[in-house]
Every structure is written in structure tokens, then in C-alpha cells.
């Protein structure tokens, strides 16, 4: 129960024990991944054979291909990065337009549209993937049969992966940006307009700067969700595999600790992203 009420000793002790167990449960998998990136062995498994950087720096001549020499893994990181950039830009731009549409505009069917915008969040990712795959193929087949056009971007490949991820990530961006736009004090805009500012100037100097934290926050979330996406990507991927798909394929085969090395790299990158965001928020609060 709560601190202001008497709590028997066994309750306090078991709460503490539960918390410790929970934190171990939470961090053990990550710690293990990080530790075995440095183990001097060919498989990420005990026993501990001493420290090595082979899984980062190793090359063919050592018999161990490290992360920085593994061109397949590096290419897949780059693929994921490019996909994530596209998804981020598209999601933030469309999400902002959606936020203005839902908070500012009046039109018939607005309620229905706002419901429809939440639907992508409750469709399992696998199904988003197959439905977009099937529909894109139908459109491509139609274009090919009727007009003789080969629309390659509608065949499995990175453009479809971008569209598939965008289809639900933009819903999250829309929610985040709308929530901030809703709290905006519109008298600020009116004041600027009365003082002779043009509409675009108001948007640029008042409204968008106000939305900035939401725009940055939703961009970070979009980037991360795209980078980590697996379900939708799996269905739409072509010849170029993003990182999650590449790692999945290797994990099924039983891979070397180079996967631990790339995982550690991901952890550090996510941690940096998280810290930067948190520091921004702290500064804003101060």
C-alpha cells in the first residue's frame, strides 16, 4: 500500500525483492548481448574466453569478420537508415498537415476521418504488410496489362517498405502533433495578424516554433519505429534487407558474435538519441 499507511515488514521486503528481480529481468538480456560482443569465442555463448575486439575490427585474414568489415551488415544498416529517413520525413510532414486538418479545419465527415486515422494503430503489422503487398501488386499488374507500364516501385522492395511503415507511423505522428497543436493559444496568432503579419509569416514565426518540440519528438519516434520495424517490413522486403530482417535471417542460422557487436552499436545509438531528447526536454522545463 502507500507510504503513509503502516506496511508490515514482509510486504516491504517482498516489494523490494520484486523490484530487484524485475530490474534483473529487464536488463539481463541486454547485458548478455553487450558482454558477449567481446568474448573471444566463435559463438555468443559461455564460457568466457577473454576479451577481444575481433567482432568489431576482425577481417577475413583473422577468420573472424567483425562489424566494420562485414559489408552485408553495413549495407543493411545503411538500408535501414535510408528507409528510416524517408519514413520520418513523410510521417512528420503528413502528420503536421493532418494535425492542422483535425484541429483547425471544419468539414463534413471530420469525425469519421478522425476515427479512421486511428485504425492503422490497431491493425497487426503483418496484415498491413500483406494488404499493401497485394494491393500494390494488383495496381502494378493492372498498369502492366492495360498500359504496358512496368511500375517497379510497386513490387516488393524498399519503396514499398517505406510506404508500409509510413502507413501506421504517420498515425502516431498525427496524434503527437495534434495533441500539442490543441493546447496552442490562438490569440497569439490573432495578435500577430492584427499587427500586420501575413498568414505564412505567422505560421513560420509563431505556430511552427511552438510545435517544434512535438515535431522533433515525433521525428525521433518515427525514425526509431522505422529502424526497428520488423512485421510490416518482412512482408514487403525485396532484395535489399534492412537491418532487422538481416539480423533475423542470421539469428535463425545461429550467428557469430558479430550480431552482438551490431546490437551493441544499436544500443549505444538509441541511448544517445534518448539522452539528446531528454536533455532538450530538461532545458525546456528549466
Amino acid at each position: 500500500m502507500i507510504p503513509s499507511l503502516p506496511r508490515p515488514f514482509w510486504l516491504r521486503a517482498s516489494t523490494a525483492a520484486f523490484l530487484v528481480a524485475f530490474l534483473i529481468f529487464l536488463f539481463l538480456p541486454l547485458v548478455v548481448v553487450a558482454v558477449f560482443a567481446f568474448n573471444n569465442a566463435n559463438y555468443p555463448a559461455p564460457p568466457w574466453n577473454g576479451f577481444t575486439l575481433d567482432w568489431f575490427l576482425g577481417n577475413e585474414s583473422l577468420g573472424r569478420v567483425g562489424l566494420f568489415k562485414d559489408s552485408q551488415l553495413l549495407a543493411s544498416i545503411w538500408t535501414s537508415f535510408v528507409v528510416a529517413c524517408w519514413v520520418t520525413v513523410l510521417s512528420v510532414v503528413v502528420g503536421t498537415a493532418n494535425a492542422f486538418l483535425m484541429e483547425r479545419a471544419k468539414f463534413p465527415g471530420k469525425g469519421a476521418l478522425s476515427m479512421l486515422m486511428l485504425v492503422p494503430l490497431v491493425i497487426p503489422g503483418v496484415i498491413l504488410g500483406i494488404s499493401i503487398l497485394a494491393f500494390a501488386s494488383r495496381v502494378a499488374d493492372f498498369a502492366s496489362d492495360v498500359f504496358g507500364l512496368e511500375l517497379d516501385f510497386l513490387r516488393p522492395g524498399l519503396p514499398l517498405v517505406v510506404l508500409g511503415q509510413f502507413s501506421y507511423i504517420v498515425a502516431i505522428a498525427t496524434l503527437t502533433i495534434s495533441a500539442r497543436l490543441k493546447r496552442f493559444d490562438r490569440t497569439l496568432e490573432d495578435a500577430a495578424l492584427n499587427l500586420g503579419a501575413t498568414q505564412p509569416a505567422v505560421l513560420r514565426t509563431i505556430t511552427l516554433p511552438y510545435l517544434r518540440p512535438a515535431l522533433i519528438g515525433s521525428a525521433a519516434i518515427a525514425f526509431l519505429m522505422s529502424f526497428e520495424n520488423f512485421n510490416t517490413t518482412l512482408m514487403l522486403v525485396g532484395a535489399d534487407s534492412p537491418l532487422t530482417i538481416m539480423m533475423y535471417g542470421r539469428m535463425r542460422e545461429g550467428a557469430t558474435p558479430v550480431l552482438n557487436a551490431v546490437s551493441l552499436f544499436l544500443m549505444v545509438a538509441s541511448a544517445l538519441l534518448a539522452l539528446t531528447l531528454m536533455r532538450r526536454n530538461d532545458r525546456k522545463d528549466a
Binding site: P29, L30, V33, P44, T244, M247, Y248, S263, S270
Partner: peptide, 12 residues
Amino acid sequence: PFWVSETVRTLG
């Protein structure tokens, strides 16, 4: 832990 991809957590 949820800033890290599900693939990494599953590897762990």
C-alpha cells in the same frame, strides 16, 4: 530496454 530493437532483445 524498449529503445532497443526487439531483434536485439530476442537475441539476448
